[in-house]
Design a binder for these strands. Structure first.
Length: 264
DNA sequence: GGGTACCCTCTCGG
DNA sequence: ACCGAGAGGGTAC
């Protein structure tokens, strides 16, 4: 089947916002969407797909986002982003499942991107429902059922946080459903109540999991970038607020373009 | 509010 | 080749 959409799969699926996509030798991408193994192949005006359906893929790729309008808005705010975005067309921010996004980013502390993917895949291989070629991201219950073997996943000091997160979601003390209705700031504060979630992880989860496009996550890379480009320094709150203030409702997109620039 | 340790893996310089 | 040091999407204390 074919989906017509303003998107380039390579930057969108390979940029590190989601961690389970694999580029196959054919150049197509394999991943899991809504508990189905999907294969996506780039075409001139979108991509062809197998294993999923148009409705789920449109949601996952945020097909309602007007990429042209978004890029033009953040480009108007800054010539650097204008240049970067023009050189990276078709990069879209994805809408990942809230639970999967949160659990993934709790693992994404003090490790390189390569190992994040490795830990995530290990957790899926151990506890996720078998979907054939791949496994689903496990539910909190599946993780708790098998937690006696969690050390095999090599999560390091993240292990107790990961288990605690699964317990919280399972017993209802962490209510992701209610967080869907929260505006950006309230959401990030609620997320930071969770052990292992600081301001950076909260911003990433708000952006990639809850679709808060004004979120401007600041990691060490963005911090250097913002200092070099705009001369802005300071603590997390200062730098992220600068990003949201400068780029507005679509600051998350601006952050993606800055993140993938080579100007550090 | 700033400084550190942190579990583990991979990479790099000797 | 082998080994030790260093760094790696940050967070908790």
């Amino acid at each position: 089947m074919q989906l017509e959409l303003d998107v380039r799969l390579d930057p969108t699926l390979g940029c590190g916002q989601a961690h389970r996509w694999r580029k196959m030798e054919s150049g197509c991408w394999q991943g899991v969407v809504k508990n189905e193994v999907v294969t996506l192949c780039q075409t001139d005006d979108g991509f062809s797909y197998t294993g999923s359906n148009e409705r789920d893929l449109k949601e996952y790729f945020r097909a309602d986002d007007d990429l042209g309008m978004i890029v033009s808005e953040i480009s108007a705010a800054d010539p650097v982003v204008a240049d970067l975005s023009s050189r990276c067309p078709g990069l879209r921010i994805l809408k990942q499942p809230e639970w999967e996004c949160l659990a993934t980013y709790v693992l994404a502390t003090n490790v390189n991107v390569k190992r994040i993917a490795k830990m995530v895949e290990s957790v899926c291989d151990h506890y996720g429902t078998d979907l054939g070629e791949r496994r689903a991201f496990p539910t909190p219950g599946q993780i708790l059922d098998g937690k006696d073997t969690i050390s095999e996943c090599r999560l390091g000091f993240r292990e107790p946080r990961f288990i605690q997160l699964a317990e919280g979601v399972e017993n209802g003390s962490i209510d992701l459903e209610s967080m869907k209705d929260m505006p950006y700031e309230k959401l990030t504060l609620a997320l930071q109540e969770i052990n292992g979630v600081g301001p950076k992880v909260a911003d990433c989860v708000a952006l990639f999991g809850f679709g808060k496009l004004e979120s401007f996550p600041v990691d060490v890379r963005i911090q250097k970038c913002v200092e070099r480009m705009y001369g802005v320094t300071g603590n997390y709150k200062t730098v992220s607020a600068f990003g949201r203030g400068k780029f507005g409702a679509y600051a998350g997109y601006a952050q993606e373009f800055l993140y993938h620039s080579d100007f550090i």
